[in-house]
Every structure is written in C-alpha cells, then in structure tokens.
C-alpha cells in the first residue's frame, strides 16, 4: 500500500491523523526551524516526544520537518532541533538546507533523512546528488513535475519518492521563492512563513474589500463574496492589457484521481499539505485518503467525491501532474 503522510500542526491533530489511519505524520517544532512557523502551531520537544509515543503505539511513524534554511550565526537552533528530534524518537527528519544536511549526516548518521520539497530537487541528477552526498533516503518531489516526469525520475534513482496529493499548491519552485520577503521582509526560507498574517491589512472600500500584503494590494473582493487569504502568488494583478491571476488561480491541489497513475510511476508515499488546518479537517482528509489508498492497493475503483466538501468554495486542480501547463 502507498504510504499516507499526513500533516499535524498540533498534538491533537497528530492524534487525530493517527486515529484516522495515517501511516505517517509530519510535524515541526514551534520556532523558525520549520516552514509552517505560525503562531499557536507546532510542537515543543516534550509534545513531540509524547506525540511520537502515541503514534508508535499505534504503528504510525512521525517525520519531523526542519525545512527552513538556518540563519547565518543562528545555526545552533537548528542543530538543537535535530538532536531533539532524534532523542524524541523521530522516524526521520525532513531537511532542505545543504549545511544542515551535511551536519545531520555527520552528527546524526542514524537519523533517517528525507529531502524536503523546499530543496526543489526536480530531476534525477539533483536527487542522486542528495542521496550520494548526504545519504538521503526519500525525496519529496516539487509540485512542478508531471506524472510522466515522476515515472522517468523513479527509473533513474534508488531512493523513495513522496508527492503532494492534496491541499495548498505552491506554483513557484519551493524553497526558491523570495516574493514574500520582497513584500514583507519575511520569507519561507528565512522565517518559515509566506505572506504572513502580521503583514496583511484588510480595508472596507466602496467597491468591496481590499486585501493588502505589506504595501501591495493582492486582492479586491466585491461585497458579499468570500475574500481569499492574500497569498502573494495567488493574487490578482494587472500586466499590460491583462488583469487576473497572473501566477496562479486560487485553486488547491487534488490529485486523488491520479493515485493509480502515481503508484504506477513508482511513488512510495502520498503527502497531504496543511499543518495549519484544523484537527477536524485533518481527520476527514486522512480518512478519505486512507480509503483511497486501500482501494488502490486492492485494485478496486477509487471512492468518488469524498473530498468535495473539503474543497468547497475552492476549485480543485491536478496541478502540474496532469500536464495542463505545458
């Protein structure tokens, strides 16, 4: 069966994901060492140890994301996080930074290393480099690849691949985007945040709601319509004669129907985005996907429409996987 890797922003979400059938849960510490460094989210070292014990008792794994790029001069915070993850019994750490991968391979050789999507390893050469140099055992693939490309990559590498199948969708190569810090001074790579709420200002105007990020207007929503969060790359802009979503429509990824194709392409694990989402959301998504991977493993048709309610108000897309961008 394909491994289902599920998000947990809190200890309660971790338990909910495990109870709902997650094979593995990924989470992070409550500081800038992980790319979902949001207020009220994430784990203390003690909470992580308790969460791991809970998961292990029920046969699930816990993967710890340390997937930001350590600040020059502040590396000790990330090094301590690695030590804490190992002593808490983490099944793997998910890393992106060259320096941190090097440190982990040297100082924590027995701690399994996965390559974060933030490393944007998008071809077999990159993956083989990380595998050969740092002993990386699994790579989370960037969301810029088609299923055919994933199949071709799997033919040329010896490590496992994990792909995103549901949730938010980065349209830029992950870990290689400083749009957020250009507008706000805070970025995924440096601070673990993108388009942070601290820099969002909504204002009621005669024609509706204006959402600004830093000094820049990202959306204008007519009165009475739901206003999307002003994530920079999903904003509405003008270029020449064109006005619209220049970079990406406000859609979220739903590759449920591609699960059989991804299995055939040699993918080991399916990842669900959303450590910032509620416990109830996590439980429902995990249950649906567990049913889907079980159906896939048994050669049965996938359950239809189970996730439609969760994607309500937001159109789903198969992203790059189905090759609509080419």
């Amino acid at each position: 069966m394909m491994e289902l890797v599920c998000p947990a922003g809190t200890p309660a979400s971790l338990r909910a994901a495990v109870d709902a059938g997650a094979h593995a849960v990924y989470c992070g510490f409550n500081d800038e060492t992980n790319a979902r460094n949001f207020p009220g989210l994430n784990f203390s070292p003690e909470e992580l140890a308790e969460g791991i014990a809970y998961a292990h008792d029920r046969g699930a794994k816990v993967l710890v994301a340390l997937n930001t790029f350590p600040r020059a001069g502040g590396e000790v915070l990330w090094h301590r996080a690695l030590a804490n993850a190992e002593s808490a019994g983490a099944d793997a750490v998910i890393l992106a930074d060259l320096g941190l991968l090097d440190y982990a391979a040297t100082h924590h050789p027995n701690l399994r290393r996965h390559l974060s999507v933030q490393a944007a390893a998008a071809n077999p050469d990159a993956i083989n480099f990380y595998a050969a140099t740092f002993g990386v055992r699994r790579v989370v693939l960037p969301r810029v690849l088609t299923v055919d490309e994933i199949r071709a990559i799997n033919r040329e590498i010896d490590v496992e691949t994990e792909v995103f199948v549901f949730g938010g969708l980065c349209v830029m190569a992950e870990g290689r985007c400083s749009l957020s810090s250009y507008a706000t001074g805070r970025s995924p790579n440096m601070n673990g945040v993108c388009s942070p709420a601290s820099h969002v200002v909504y204002s009621e105007e005669t024609d509706g709601l204006r959402a600004r990020l830093g000094d820049f207007t990202i959306h204008r929503t007519p009165k009475g319509q739901p206003a999307p969060y002003p994530t920079l790359c999903k904003g509405c802009f003008t270029s020449g004669e064109q006005t619209g979503h220049v970079f990406e429509d406000p859609v979220s990824l739903d590759a449920t129907q591609l699960i059989p194709a991804l299995a055939k392409a040699g993918v080991t694990a399916l990842k669900i985005e959303g450590r910032q989402r509620s416990r109830a959301y996590v439980a429902e998504v995990v249950r649906s996907f567990r049913a889907a991977v079980e159906a896939q493993a048994a050669g049965l048709p996938l359950p239809q429409g189970a996730l439609a309610r969760l994607a309500e108000g937001q159109a789903g897309t198969t992203g790059a996987y189905a090759k609509t961008w080419r």
Partner: peptide, 20 residues
C-alpha cells in the same frame, strides 16, 4: 531581483499560450 522560478511560463500564460 530574481525572486522566484516556476515550472510554468508566465509570459506564455499571459498570452494564453501553453509553455510548449
């Protein structure tokens, strides 16, 4: 400033064309 790279071509997208 080079702020981001993507698998998608925005010039093509703005002209309603596929990348290829």
């Amino acid at each position: 400033l080079p702020l981001a790279v993507s698998g998608r071509c925005y010039h093509a997208r703005l002209h309603d064309r596929a990348k290829d």
